[in-house]
C-alpha cells in the first residue's frame, strides 16, 4: 500500500534504524513498508500513525477510496 512513511521519517530527521528501534520493530519492516513491498497489520499501521501523530489515512493512501 502506497504511503508517505519515508517523507514523515525524514521530516523527523530519523534513519530507518532509529524509527525501527523507536517502534520496536525490525529495520527490514520499515524498509519494506516504505518500498510498498509489505502491507503492515492494522495495529502496526495505527502504531506508525500514532508515532507521527497523523491519521492512518494520512500515512497510508487508501486505494479503494475515490479522491
Amino acid at each position: 500500500m502506497k504511503n508517505c512513511l519515508r517523507d514523515l521519517r525524514k521530516g523527523r530527521g530519523l534513519n530507518q534504524a532509529d524509527l525501527a528501534e523507536a517502534l520496536e520493530v525490525s529495520r527490514q519492516t520499515i524498509i519494506a513498508v516504505e518500498a510498498d513491498k509489505y502491507d503492515p497489520s492494522l495495529p502496526m499501521a495505527y502504531r506508525l500513525a500514532a508515532y507521527f501523530d497523523v491519521a492512518v489515512e494520512e500515512l497510508f493512501f487508501n486505494p479503494w477510496k475515490a479522491d
Binding site: 520496536e24 525490525s26 527490514q28 519492516t29 497489520s41 502496526m44
Partner: peptide, 8 residues
C-alpha cells in the same frame, strides 16, 4: 520479539 513482517 519478532514483528508482523518477520512472523509472516
Amino acid at each position: 520479539k519478532t514483528d508482523d513482517l518477520q512472523q509472516q
